[in-house]
Design a protein around this nucleic acid. Structure first.
Lengths: 237, 237
DNA sequence: CGAGTTGTTGAGTTGCGTCAACCGTTGTGG
DNA sequence: CCACAACGGTTGACGCAACTCAACAACTCG
């Protein structure tokens, strides 16, 4: 099951040989369920396994000054700690937002199959490069846009990434985030996020209640955010 | 000569076998000199080569709204477009700031040596992962810090990265950036960058005139910026 | 039922942006 | 050789986006 997720993702992102698919399918793994707030890894740890997010959401967080800054979100199919294969020390906490399930694959097994296949190696590398592209987009979003388009951009990105893994249905998706989480990711105060969400509602762009977000006018929302999904590159179904 | 730079960098970042060093040394390349403002690649292009920055500075830029946002700086030894090996379409301009020199290595040659050596492949992969760590740090810096520590952090990062390649001498380094460039990178206005630099001077933390930056009190500057170089990971001499 | 989240609102404050002017340096051409 | 334009740095006045503080409402859960 995590194999199917992983294979589908890498297939979308690169191209796999029959051999590669077999190699992936024989990777041993274990499952782990996370409650809201549980961490996959913590800053400073030297993990010996990577995780594949099967279900739910994870956030990469770290305390900066008096803020609890979030620098990335992960959705189903993502491997939030793939980099620990080559950079052994984790520099952030990676925590569950709401409940989630992950598959855990030991570094040694993963490394074994990677050194055996150059194409697989490149497929995983490519996966990390797409994450880089997302970080760059966050840099631009945080530096250049003010609250309204900044929040709109985040919503567009989450929608686009969820769409890739089939979790966007009729323009709406599940998002178990509090406004505090959103504020920590956008570099804005909770109060201002609250007012900004209201403004998006007022403009008829989204509906957002409880854990459900609905895109009422996706093209106008994307225009407001200057959103262009091409930076997600290979991420196609 | 670009080989020496490349080998030294990858050696610092990972570990190379004798064979790997030979493979790198036999990579064919050409040189290119850039004037201030010249681009290595432009958004939308599909380059067939990667570049190694030999001398000078490059910036990754893109227009966001009415801003000319910079999302990364590159110093000697960096490979700013290494990702084009796997993500063919460039999503930013990469331009020279002041004069610079780069070595150009064709994708096909690079790809050839990479598929031949798993360790080399992983060394380059690791290089891109370190760039990712830098992007994440920029996300945090932009989202969580206000002008003074934000600027201080950028100065600390540049100093640390230049130190790795031996371009920091007695706490001072060459930086051919205008205040406008700094503003574009920090997500602040030119006027405010100007006042913030003055505040750093007033506090006796840096001297900055013309193209020369001097760190007068590095530890206090790093404390102000909450700077911790460990996110540059393997980047050691 | 009370206690703890999460969302919402109002009032006052502030960090940073905008506009506009001025200064010093550099380079260029009449 | 000087006039002048272009550029980068600096300063002051004013405005606004976003922050802080504080209170309250709605909801969940023990």
């Amino acid at each position: 099951m995590p194999h199917r997720m992983l294979i589908a993702r890498l297939q979308a992102v690169a191209g796999l040989t029959q051999q590669d698919r077999c190699a992936l399918q024989s990777l041993p793994y274990s499952f782990k369920s996370l409650e809201s707030g549980d961490c996959v890894i913590r800053e400073g740890e030297r993990p010996n396994a990577c995780t594949v997010l099967m279900d739910g959401f994870l956030a990469r967080r770290r305390v900066i000054g008096d803020r609890n800054q979030i620098s990335a979100f992960y959705v189903a199919g993502d491997m939030p700690d793939l980099h620990t294969l080559h950079l052994p020390t984790a520099d952030h906490d990676i925590c569950s937002i709401g409940r989630s399930r992950v598959a855990v694959i030991g570094h040694s097994h993963l490394m074994g199959t990677l050194t055996a296949s150059a194409t697989l190696s490149h497929a995983f590398w490519r996966e990390t490069l797409i994450q880089s592209a997302i970080y760059r987009d966050w840099v631009e979003n945080l530096a250049a846009r003010q609250a309204l388009p900044r929040l709109a951009h985040l919503v567009c990105e989450l929608a686009a990434r969820l769409e890739v893994v089939g979790l966007l249905r009729e323009g709406s998706f599940t998002l178990p985030f509090t406004q505090e989480i959103i504020a920590d990711a956008c570099g804005l105060s909770i109060v201002h996020i609250n007012r900004t969400i209201q403004e998006l509602r007022r403009q008829g762009l989204i509906e957002w209640e409880g854990h459900r977000v609905e895109l009422l006018n996706r093209s106008r929302l994307q225009a407001l955010a200057e959103f262009d999904a091409s930076y997600l590159h290979a991420l196609r179904r």
